[in-house]
């Protein structure tokens, strides 16, 4: 997706400088990606250890940046390092990345399910979102705290898949491998996470509050 690229927009010349060891460019890379990487680590290792995991990941990334080949987006490349660090952290603690409760997510259901009537037509259709630029859609100040609350309350499987796919750009195949989940499972989980976000924005657009 085009706009996804913009989170790591860097032309070839800039990328070359970054790989050659330009520290101020690396600091910009940190600025643009640090919080997204923390958000990626939190559902796996927990809030208290996410910071340490991402710090170590930055260290590895800094050592390896010259080998970045540009086949993936930078954020995806960074995300992969974070996932590896997070798994290492789990191993150190004698834990495993194993969400046994992942299958039993049925009760959380689909956030938009009650918007349809019995024959499957819209009963309360979506509001008309007034968006100038899509990038700003979730960045509005009065939405920030509700968004944070929603993400914190999201089942861990939904949160992980959402961060992997939609903020970090992992492929479905990679997500299935990382999490040992079937493709159809990943898609259902992702759909539920997206529906929650959709509902949040829709409610905000309709009522001006969340």
């Amino acid at each position: 997706m085009e706009v996804r690229e913009k989170t790591n927009f860097m032309d070839n010349a800039t990328l070359h400088r970054l790989k050659a060891g330009d520290q101020s460019l690396f600091a910009e890379l940190v600025r643009d990606n640090h919080r997204a990487l923390i958000a990626l680590a939190v559902p796996i290792v927990g809030q208290s250890e996410a910071e340490e995991v991402v710090q170590n990941a930055w260290l590895k990334a800094h050592q390896a940046i010259a080998t970045f080949e540009g086949r993936a987006q930078l954020r995806t490349w960074l995300g992969r390092i974070v996932i590896n660090e997070a798994k290492m952290q789990l191993r150190k603690r004698g834990r495993e990345l194993l969400f046994s409760d992942w299958q039993s997510d049925e009760q959380s259901g689909d956030a938009l399910a009650d918007r349809f009537n019995r024959s499957g037509r819209w009963q309360s259709p979506p509001a008309d979102w007034e968006t100038d630029t899509p990038e700003d859609l979730l960045m509005r100040e009065d939405l920030a705290s509700c968004l944070e609350e929603l993400l914190d309350a999201m089942p861990v499987n939904q949160r992980t898949v959402l961060e992997l796919r939609d903020t970090t750009g992992f492929s479905f195949e990679d997500i299935c491998n990382e999490l040992s989940l079937s493709a159809s499972n990943v898609r259902v989980i992702l759909h539920r996470a997206r529906s929650q976000l959709y509902k949040l924005v829709d409610h905000y657009e309709e009522t001006g509050e969340c």
Binding site: R4, R35, A36, P134, L138, L162
Partner: peptide
């Protein structure tokens, strides 16, 4: 249409450090 916009917005939902 709005789902597309949402998916484009998600990468930006984590603000800069």
């Amino acid at each position: 249409r709005q789902l597309r916009a949402l998916l484009q917005a998600i990468p930006f939902m984590h603000s800069k450090a």
